Simulated scan of single mutants.
Amino acid sequence: MSYRVELQASGEFINAMGSHPRGRVIFTGDGWVAFNLEGSDRKPANTEEDRASLMKTLVAYVGRYRIEGNQWVTSVETAWAPEWVGTEQRRNVTITGDIAEVVTPWRKMPNWAKNQMSRSIIKFTRA
């Protein structure tokens, strides 16, 4: 798995999830998707500040999904970020062999690059 975040204004890539993020996306035959991504080198929290900081290296949501052309669209029912609940999340997907490259639209993420437009480029390997 790889995860890169591109800032729209500068074209710069930031290492939002570290060098070795881990995660899964699971699609069920009856139309559900569960997405979980966490940054590398996360450590258990010792303080409330540590616990709050861990939220910067987590993306997780669950919902019903549908496919539209080369996009996977999720109607989010639960999420690590409450502002995502009740939204639709669109992802462009390109599959080459066992690799799926997933690209988000430009958006403002609650975790990083405050008030800047960014997009994520994620590569998953089929399990």
Rank of each mutant, 00 (worst) to 15 (best):
K108D: 07
W106G: 06
E38G: 12
V59Q: 06
A60T: 07
T57W: 08
K56H: 13
T74A: 04
P82L: 05
R107K: 14
I67M: 04
N36E: 12
P44T: 10
T78V: 14
A52C: 11
E48A: 11
M55E: 02
M117S: 07
Y61V: 01
Q71C: 10
D41H: 15
A113T: 00
E83K: 13
E88N: 13
R51I: 04
E77C: 09
E77Y: 09
W112V: 11
G97C: 04
K108L: 07
L58T: 08
D98N: 14
R107E: 15
R42I: 06
E68L: 08
S40R: 01
W72Q: 14
G97D: 01
K108P: 08
T78C: 11
G86R: 07
N46G: 14
I67F: 02
I95Q: 01
R90Q: 08
T57C: 09
A79S: 06
W72H: 14
N70C: 01
V102N: 02
R51N: 09
L58D: 02
D50L: 00
V93K: 01
L54G: 05
K108F: 03
L58R: 03
A52T: 13
N46W: 11
R64M: 07
R91K: 03
A81E: 10
A100F: 07
A45S: 10
V103S: 05
S75Y: 10
E38L: 13
V59R: 04
M109C: 13
E101L: 04
A52H: 08
T57Y: 07
V103H: 00
K114C: 05
A79K: 00
G69C: 00
W72V: 13
M55Y: 05
P105F: 12
Q89L: 12
T47L: 01
E68V: 10
